[in-house]
Simulated assay, not measured.
Amino acid sequence: MSAVKQFYRLTNQLIELLEKSQTDRDQKIAQTESLLDQRETVMKGIFPPYTSEEAELGKELIQLDARLTRLLEADKDLIQKEIKGLQAKKESNAKYINPYQNLSTDGMFYDKRK
């Protein structure tokens, strides 16, 4: 199998994995990293001249790559939102436990005279 066909197959597998949201997130991330690593190694083996079939696959790959980029960005945004939510929850919990921890001393008057 040519490198372009392998790259096309791996790209389709990656898109399918990202579109189905039934799998566990940790498992999904591990599989995504594995497929991205495989794509990277196959990409290094793609050299011209291309056959007419490989040229057609290349045109399709451009569209698939844009779709893959959107899916990866969406997953990244989702993970970032969850991280921000967890940080806000952690901060809120800390404020609940000790509400006087971060009191500002701005505007406090200190008299040096006795």
Rank of each mutant, 00 (worst) to 15 (best):
residue 83 I to S: 05
residue 25 R to W: 14
residue 44 K to C: 08
residue 55 A to H: 05
residue 11 T to N: 02
residue 85 G to R: 01
residue 1 M to L: 10
residue 53 E to S: 03
residue 9 R to T: 15
residue 32 T to H: 12
residue 84 K to G: 04
residue 42 V to R: 00
residue 86 L to H: 13
residue 18 L to A: 00
residue 33 E to Y: 08
residue 51 T to L: 00
residue 29 I to L: 15
residue 105 T to Q: 13
residue 70 R to W: 07
residue 111 D to S: 08
residue 8 Y to G: 00
residue 46 I to V: 01
residue 112 K to P: 11
residue 35 L to M: 02
residue 43 M to C: 11
residue 96 Y to R: 14
residue 99 P to T: 05
residue 87 Q to C: 04
residue 50 Y to V: 04
residue 11 T to R: 06
residue 90 K to W: 09
residue 30 A to V: 02
residue 79 I to D: 04
residue 47 F to G: 10
residue 25 R to S: 14
residue 77 D to E: 15
residue 38 Q to V: 00
residue 37 D to G: 15
residue 75 D to H: 03
residue 109 F to Q: 14
residue 19 E to F: 02
residue 11 T to W: 01
residue 47 F to I: 14
residue 76 K to G: 01
residue 25 R to G: 00
residue 78 L to H: 15
residue 50 Y to P: 07
residue 31 Q to W: 01
residue 114 K to N: 12
residue 62 I to G: 08
residue 71 L to E: 00
residue 1 M to S: 12
residue 2 S to K: 04
residue 59 K to S: 05
residue 34 S to Q: 15
residue 99 P to K: 03
residue 94 A to V: 00
residue 98 N to Y: 10
residue 101 Q to E: 14
residue 104 S to A: 05
residue 51 T to Y: 00
residue 90 K to F: 11
residue 23 T to I: 15
residue 48 P to A: 10
residue 26 D to E: 13
residue 108 M to Q: 12
residue 97 I to D: 03
residue 114 K to S: 12
residue 51 T to W: 01
residue 111 D to K: 08
residue 40 E to N: 10
residue 49 P to D: 04
residue 63 Q to F: 10
residue 85 G to W: 00
residue 13 Q to H: 07
residue 87 Q to W: 01
residue 75 D to G: 05
residue 14 L to I: 04
residue 113 R to A: 15
residue 44 K to H: 13
residue 73 E to V: 09
residue 51 T to E: 04
residue 11 T to C: 00
residue 31 Q to F: 05
residue 40 E to H: 08
residue 30 A to C: 03
residue 90 K to P: 04
residue 103 L to F: 07
residue 69 T to L: 15
residue 107 G to V: 03
residue 14 L to F: 02
residue 25 R to A: 15
residue 27 Q to I: 10
residue 1 M to A: 11
residue 77 D to V: 12
residue 31 Q to A: 07
residue 62 I to M: 14
residue 36 L to T: 09
residue 73 E to C: 01
residue 68 L to F: 06
residue 29 I to K: 05
residue 83 I to N: 06
residue 89 K to H: 09
residue 11 T to H: 00
residue 50 Y to F: 15
residue 2 S to R: 01
residue 103 L to Y: 11
residue 18 L to H: 06
residue 108 M to C: 08
residue 79 I to Q: 03
residue 56 E to Q: 11
residue 107 G to F: 05
residue 74 A to F: 03
residue 69 T to V: 13
residue 73 E to A: 09
residue 77 D to H: 12
residue 90 K to S: 05
residue 25 R to H: 11
residue 61 L to F: 09
residue 46 I to C: 00
residue 76 K to S: 09
residue 60 E to K: 14
residue 48 P to Y: 04
residue 104 S to M: 01
residue 86 L to K: 11
residue 42 V to K: 08
residue 56 E to R: 06
residue 6 Q to A: 07
residue 9 R to K: 14
residue 31 Q to P: 02
residue 25 R to I: 15
residue 8 Y to F: 14
residue 64 L to T: 03
